[in-house]
């Protein structure tokens, strides 16, 4: 069964295996998220220079833009839901343009949407340009508890199998249910989820057994050293950190606008 829906690391190149160290990418992504979330709730224009980060990484690492957008758009309903009530609660008029009164709620709604899309884009770009095992190794080297990293690895490894089992179960239900497009009733869904859990537990037992017979003693050992090259990874981190700080503390669009108008 194809598992293309779960595939995240299919873009080799400058940012993939053998490219920028995953620790550098994780650090820069977190710095980006920190800066994005640190802006005030009515800030929109000053966020725009931050689009340079996901856009440039996408360009350099040859990530297909359509695929990236599809994955970013998956988060859009959640993003819109988060800011949905702002226009209702915050009705203070901030400015008027072309005869329209724009309330603070609408401004903060757009700002939240902007910031969320930026954050999701950065996370998706990180996932699409870094093999998952390298990403996990990077997280572990950065001090994330090993047990958590191992959980992540197992989740990634077995997510597709869980998905396959769920699809098979839904298909079996559809074949025995009435109607052209049978709906799964709540009672059936509860039972199916229960069976899925039991199957997962069975599989977990079998995997644990297969680990035991190969000498597992509680520690998952990996043999892939990461090399942090200052000439490459150091420059990558320094450049983007400096850029984010500049965008955070200097009103880049305002200055550019003023500069253009001044001329």
């Amino acid at each position: 069964m194809p598992t293309s829906g779960c595939r995240l690391d299919e873009n080799p190149g400058f940012f993939s295996r053998g490219g920028v160290d995953p620790r550098a990418k994780v650090f820069v992504t977190f710095a980006f998220l920190l800066v994005v979330t640190s802006f005030g709730k009515y800030e929109i224009s000053r966020l725009t220079p931050l689009f340079l980060y996901p856009v440039s990484i996408t360009a350099v690492s040859c990530v297909p833009v359509a695929k990236l957008l599809r994955r970013v758009l998956v988060a859009l309903p959640f993003v819109l839901f988060v800011g949905l009530f702002n226009p209702l609660f915050d009705r203070q008029i901030l400015f008027k343009a072309w005869g329209l009164s724009i309330s603070g709620g609408w401004i903060s709604f757009v700002s939240i949407t902007f910031r969320s899309l930026l954050a999701v884009a950065a996370a998706v770009v990180l996932a699409m340009t870094t093999p998952f095992d390298r990403l996990c190794l990077g997280l572990e080297k950065m001090g994330v508890p090993r047990v958590l990293v191992t959980q992540l690895q197992f989740l990634y490894r077995y997510l597709s199998l869980l998905q396959e089992e769920a699809v098979r179960m839904v298909r079996a239900h559809a074949l025995r249910a009435r109607g052209n497009r049978p709906k799964i009733r709540v009672s059936s869904a509860a039972s199916m989820i229960g069976f899925l859990l039991l199957r997962s537990l069975d599989r977990a037992t079998r995997i644990y057994r297969s680990m035991l017979v190969r000498g597992f003693d509680g520690e998952v050992r990996l043999m892939k050293p990461l090399r942090f090259a200052w000439s490459r990874d150091g420059i990558f981190v320094a450049f983007w950190t400096l850029y984010f700080l500049t965008v955070r503390f200097v009103d880049v669009p305002g200055r550019l606008f003023g500069w253009v108008l001044g001329r």
Binding site: S210, L212, V213, G215, R221
Partner: peptide, 30 residues
């Protein structure tokens, strides 16, 4: 267990590491 090599019925139960290399190296590393 070090002296017995156990091949499970479902290879998906046996291959749990991120890459083939890591999987084959799992036993020797232990």
């Amino acid at each position: 267990r070090r002296r017995i090599g156990f091949l499970f019925q479902d290879p998906d139960d046996q291959l749990f590491m991120p890459t083939v290399f890591d999987d084959v190296a799992f036993g020797p590393l232990n």
